[in-house]
Nucleic acid binder design. Structure first.
Lengths: 153, 153
DNA sequence: CAGTATCCTGAACGATACTG
DNA sequence: CAGTATCGTTCAGGATACTG
């Protein structure tokens, strides 16, 4: 994704979007992280994405350290690669969960929620937590730019 | 943003991306939600975005119920509109925070983190919480598609 | 099947002129 | 200043052929 604003490189939001901000990126990640798809063809079929596009999206995410390729070989055919999240990639699941939660809460599909998030048998939500891991109200959250950052804008 | 996959309308991730998945959408929201910008010109200057593009992004987010226009009038000039988050829009702050946190954690800018998130005087993180608002490890999170959804794919 | 290479199209974007 | 309208451009994406 093209850089964008003047502070593109300083802002972590923008830097993350440079990796996963393309139209298909987060959907590819949905396939890998939520549905456990790892083979090229599985992702391709599930998304009906053009193969060159999928190839490119996978490559940029591999380059960015979000996914990694594992070689595998099925009986009688050549070596292939499957695509798996790195630890960093796995952390992006929270972005997907946040997008999903907002959609569920404010723009739910016709027939109601289609995919639920759970922790054991209780529902899971994405929230802002303090250092003792307790959730707070969104209104309590503050963003504080550093002096250097303010100067740059 | 164009629909995408075959299950575009069923998936809350995709539905949300249809609203905020364009290149500039989340950056406009950063201006409004994080930096408190509400005037057209303020956002325009801060992002150096083309006015027609900004106009369109604002319009789609107003249509989607993420932002709302408030009329205001400065002494001696005509009525203008300022743009403010709705309650639904405010909830998108968690998506921004999640993107930012990932960037901070795994792809931090050269000079270190530029904008911190805090709750009072303690740092804030985005996390998965259970019904009693306690954070859990990401590995414990499960996504469960409904039967109807599985059928559709 | 798992991709890569080519070519083409379109939509989002950029620049800019224009209006109240 | 706050937008809208127009026009040109560019790049992501779509279709498809091709290779091992």
């Amino acid at each position: 994704m093209k850089s964008g604003s003047p502070i593109a490189d300083l802002c972590s939001i923008e830097r993350t979007l440079q990796i996963v901000g393309e139209r298909w990126s987060l959907l590819v990640l949905r396939e890998v992280l939520l549905y456990g798809h790892s083979k090229f063809g599985d992702i391709e079929r599930s998304l009906t994405i053009a193969p060159n596009v999928l190839s490119e999206r996978l490559a940029t995410m591999v380059d960015a350290g979000v996914l990694e390729k594992h070689e595998y070989r099925e009986a009688g055919s050549r070596a292939r690669f499957s695509y798996h999240p790195t630890d960093a990639g796995r952390d992006l699941i929270i972005v997907l969960a946040a997008l999903q939660q907002w959609g569920d809460d404010h723009n739910a599909p016709e027939g109601g929620v289609t995919v639920t998030r759970s922790l054991g048998d209780s529902p899971a939500r994405v929230a802002i937590v303090d250092s003792s891991r307790r959730a707070h109200d969104l209104d309590d959250l503050r963003f504080s730019p550093t002096a250097a950052y303010v100067r740059a804008r």
